[in-house]
Design a protein around this nucleic acid. Structure first.
Lengths: 324, 324
DNA sequence: CTGAAAGCGCTTACAG
DNA sequence: CTGAAAGCGCTTACAG
């Protein structure tokens, strides 16, 4: 910073002012300072800024890079955090990097709040968080006291059952998410929606992965008769079901309709064209950021529970039921 | 740190010593210090450490979270960097975050070296890097002077053509990666391998995505006659080809064999079972880290060019050619 | 706008 | 092992 200041013959705090967009410098001076910083390849040292300022203006994000929908959310969080004057510190979880390890790294970075997306990570050990605010974005609702932003699972499943029943389907099987996050809510919503219509329940336990969907489809293929429609716990699972059925010579949707949940990129592929339910990652990210900023500003604010309404997306993987 | 020291009645630098695993404290003392740090929920401030030390021991990574193989590499980089005493600072690229923006963030974190994975990002503007070492890990070879670690594309394509020709295939179509990174190398390798065997070339330009593979498959389906085998530029593209063919009623591999490149998770799905070529992400990550650490320690070291040999993985998407 | 000063939480070096 | 000191690159507050 001194180099930039000396280069222009101005003071260091003038440079500091300009680069932080604070008032106290003319337009002309700002332009010159910015040009000089650019020319000298100067980048302010984040460590020094954080160390000196009483606030880091950093938010930590616990998530899984392998989950496409979590990556969608993180992209939106980047944009939303910047708008609100915060930087994001990524804490990607994996088999080799436990929640504990990643959390220690984030705390070493002096984050002011934590966004927990990590569906699989579970928030089990998160209670030893040293008093910084935490917002759960989807995933298991581990902390009753934390702010919480998530999709309305029940409404989403209702939309899908309504859609399938409207197409004349009565034998609708749910390939569930097993023990996964939100799996229970979705299964219960399926059961309630079916019972409300007087339709028989059929649940095949699986998980939120293509592999689990493929295994469930094999189980269904081994039966005397396939269901008329299959409602999978999420898109990845639905893709496993669909891929396996198609390779076994079953026509989708002529023989069986298949629907997913999430509207992730996998649902939009030309050979998938999956009917599903969309929840807008930008809206979810915005709600989560609003919640955490609010909590940082006022630790005693009342707890937020945001339920995002889903939207039905009808594509080519569902069609009218066969009369039989 | 002072709190921890006072809690035990020891000095601050004793605590500092122990937490950095330096010599100068007894085992018993180390145990007590660690226990007290744990109890008080103390996490050393990374900003202070970096600011004070003359080295950050941080490495930046430019990559794309949506590319499964890049995520595989990043996971391995985390482990490898820790072994070598470095921390990773992630710089995920996306439509909303340009290379310039992300690079500025990484430089603000005082990274000592940069690993560029970002296949799509291109290293176009990277020449304005202020003198920190850069290693390219796959992707376009933008900087002739930089260390470079990548898969041996030519050897990989050779293995696949050899495999298909050995199964009796003669009409082998290459669905290419178009303008994508490494696409040209792979296409040239295909052409050379085919010509060496006296086989006719057939290249359908596409890209490294499922969508592009699906479009290419539609083009092939519109022809009077399908090729006997299809060699796609990568697994994602091959999955698009395979998914589209299967939905059109083509049997794989009975009617057409399909092969990919990368051995990403998509190739291992039960309804894909793709023959492909594997390059070990752990080995690639290790080579890239060795290169960057070497370059940090000795900026004048000779340029590294690491070509990782690939391994043929035969699965169920390829089979004997039909006699016709 | 400038100039001089303090201080964030550490690490480093040194005398004891 | 302790104690006292310096300093990393900034931000903040203040008198001019």
């Amino acid at each position: 910073m001194k180099d930039v200041a000396d280069h222009l013959g101005v003071s260091r705090q003038l440079v500091s002012l300009v680069l932080r967009d604070l008032p106290g410098a003319s337009e002309e001076t700002r332009r010159r300072v910015r040009a000089a910083a650019e020319e000298l390849g100067y980048h302010p040292d984040d460590s020094a800024r954080v160390l000196r300022g009483h606030r880091s203006r950093r938010l930590g994000v616990l998530f899984t890079m392998r989950e496409p929908f979590e990556v969608d959310l993180v992209e939106e969080l980047f944009a939303g955090a910047a708008e609100r004057g915060y930087a994001l510190v990524l804490g990607p979880l994996s088999a080799a990097r436990s929640q504990r390890t990643v959390l220690a790294e984030l705390l070493g970075q002096r984050i002011e709040g934590l966004l927990v997306l990590a569906a699989e990570g579970g928030s089990a050990t998160i209670d030893d968080l040293p008093g910084i605010p935490l917002v759960q974005l989807g995933g298991p609702r581990a902390l009753e006291t934390a702010d919480d932003v998530r999709v309305d699972d029940t409404a989403g499943i209702d939309l899908l059952v309504e859609h399938l029943a409207g197409l004349g389907h009565r034998a609708i099987t749910h390939v569930s998410g097993g023990d996964g996050p939100n799996a229970r809510e979705r299964r219960l919503a399926y059961e309630a929606a079916m019972e409300r219509r007087g339709l028989a329940l059929d649940v095949v336990p699986a998980a939120f992965t293509e592999d689990a969907g493929a295994r469930a489809a094999q189980d269904l293929l081994a039966r005397k008769r396939l269901p008329s429609a299959i409602l999978a716990a999420n898109d990845r699972c639905a893709a496993g079901v669909l891929g396996t059925l198609v390779r076994a010579g079953v026509r989708v949707p002529a023989d069986v309709s298949v629907a997913g949940f999430d509207d992730s990129s996998i649902a939009r592929l030309p050979y998938t064209q999956m009917t599903t339910v969309r929840h807008d990652p930008a809206r979810l990210a915005g709600a989560a950021l609003d919640a955490i900023v609010r909590r940082i500003d006022d630790p005693d604010a009342t707890t937020v529970r945001h339920l995002e309404p889903p939207l039905l997306i009808v594509r080519a993987s569902t069609g009218p039921a066969l009369a039989r």
